[in-house]
Write a protein that binds this DNA or RNA. Sequence first.
DNA 1: GCCCAGGCGTCCC
DNA 2: GGGACGCATGGG
Length: 258
Amino acid sequence: MIEICTKYLDLGRISNSGQCFRWNSLGNDRYSFVTNGKVYESYCKNGKVVFSNTSEDSLDYLNKYFDMQTDYDFIIKVSPQDDAYLQAAIRKFGGVRILNQDLWETMVSFIISQRKSIPAIRSCVETICERFGNRIQDERYSFPDAEVLSNVSLDDLRKCSVGYRDAYIKSAAEWFLENKDKAITYEMLLEIPGIGKKVSNCISLFALHDLSCCPIDVWMQRIIDTRYNGKYPEWMESQYAGVYQQYAFMYERYLSEK
DNA sequence: GCCCAGGCGTCCC
DNA sequence: GGGACGCATGGG
């Protein structure tokens, strides 16, 4: 068992943040998630986040995964104080951090994400893991690496409910194997069929950890149209745009559910 | 059954 | 460079 202490780490909200698709609620505010080829279990106790089924050798990984080196206090402090909408979003979702996720898994997850709901993305990703990943424990499987998916037939990919994205995934696998020794950038990702600005921004934010990247999906466009009269607010072009975007994305979805 | 989803590629102007 | 259109599929 290891613990991480912070006020900006809300497991429940992170699990529903739309940046990760392999988190599950275990009930009683406990969550499991698959990353780093392992299944982690976590809960919050006395202001600390506890990882109950792992030891010190995962501490460095989890500190990186949960972005503990970034000062969210500062990011929130320098946000525009006169923007009532953004400040309300921060108050509600300030416990969400931008995760440092695996590049390859994030590439495939967000290629799948286009024109799909978050539950549908989770379902697709989980099916791909069950069919092509390695069994870790119980019914949990690792995310298959690029070499494995590059050798899977389009038919077998399509059986995972990815639809027309099957060829995108396969060409992304080949691209990734060719470029795996290079430093991948936002611009390079745009070369891959099926990856446009929005998806490349998501990958750059959630895997390359460029906090200035600001994915504009249907929810963000709705925010621009209805909350800012069709004009991009200043914070969308700031150096922490991706973080503010995450709060706003979740806040707008939250408001629509009420 | 209908509508929508963390969009993109293509075509056409 | 911008706008219309088709796209596979599941969840609500």
